[in-house]
Design a protein around this nucleic acid. Structure first.
Lengths: 195, 195
DNA sequence: CGTTATGTACACCAATCAGTGTGCTTAACC
DNA sequence: GGTTAAGCACACTGATTGGTGTACATAACG
């Protein structure tokens, strides 16, 4: 009569709690927003006891901050490092990535979402968002420099703004705006990089 | 000992309840976000009894929707109608407006905020946001046509995206991004309008 | 083996929130 | 002056929330 078998595959959900919590966070915070995701629901999805969750993250805010930090490694994964593309092509390829799937509506950059949902500008997660956005702009500027742009910093900042605009607008209009952003990017890149 | 004098100027707060509620909504929803503004606080600021508030708006969602509808009249006030500017100048002037004040940080377009905070895509306020954004793009397109742009609809959509990008990015970075957007706009307008 | 992390179950707390019920007061209008 | 609509005070409900306390179970490791 032992209650050993509880997990989905008959296994005890055991050891990997922290990972499951973070993974559930990514899913739920993205789908429902941070504010509309309760810790109870999150624990249920992660198949983790509430107590365990609070042993890993002493506060919801802490979990949110760690959830955002998790994206850092992926900084536009495989785009900046793709050596099969010229620097110029890489600058434009950024705008193809975010289109994840046809049924995955309103993806919305998690950092923008966090910056809107968390009103306190001092919130550590807001800082995380700030740093990430600056990092993206910096990588874009690096690539722009590599491509021989006249003012790489400016072009990097401009392209970053286009990304954010596409993300926000996609959310509000419920329709892809990255194509428009890509078209603008093409104009800017052409104008900034002498051939 | 009658409790007549309660309002700020010794007047009873009386008759104008609905207006005060809407006005408090604009202030609080903008400053704190919709989700972080409770009806109790809102009523306190509006100097309105809770009962009265619920006689005007049977639900918080209804109030939110009405709050968003209120912006429609102001569609970028005084910019599109400013006949002292050429159409081309009007297209660029749009990017000067949003800078309200130096201490008024993170203004963030209320429609983007609403679209992020309200997860349900069916929410009437989301629809309101959608319509407003489309309206802005349409007015921009009209002005672009007036200015003789080759593809007015495209230019309108592009400029609208720049506005949203600047709003979102200003929020995340806590620093003005409209100057960057204006620079991009200048490039696009120059490229699209034959001289 | 025994110890030590790690995880679990479940009840519980205090706070907050949207929304109501009730009875009373006041201003506006005829 | 009397009716009516608008507003008010205030207590209250029911649900949800973030977070704890407690006692127990199990897996890993030496």
């Amino acid at each position: 009569m032992t209650e050993l078998e509880k997990g989905p595959q008959g296994r005890r959900r055991g050891r990997g709690a922290r990972e499951r919590i973070l993974s559930a966070s990514q899913q739920l915070f993205r789908e429902q927003g941070i504010g509309h995701t309760g810790m109870d629901q999150l624990c249920a999805v992660a198949q983790v006891s509430k107590r365990t969750a609070y042993q890993h993250f002493s506060t919801k805010d802490e979990l949110v901050t760690e959830y955002l930090r998790r994206f850092d490694p992926d900084v536009l994964p495989g785009v900046f490092d793709n050596s099969e593309l010229t620097p110029r092509e890489r600058l434009l390829a950024v705008f193809d990535v975010p289109t994840t799937g046809p049924d995955d509506l309103t993806p919305l950059c998690p950092y923008i979402a966090a910056a809107v949902e968390l009103n306190d500008p001092q919130h550590p997660a807001r800082r995380q968002a700030h740093d990430y956005k600056r990092a993206i702009a910096a990588r874009l500027a690096d690539t722009a420099r590599e491509a021989g742009a006249a003012d790489p910093e400016q072009l990097g900042e401009q392209l970053a703004l286009l990304l954010d605009g596409a993300a926000a607008r996609t959310r509000v209009l419920n329709a892809d705006a990255f194509r428009t952003a890509a078209a603008i990017a093409a104009v800017l890149v052409d104008a900034a990089i002498p051939r």
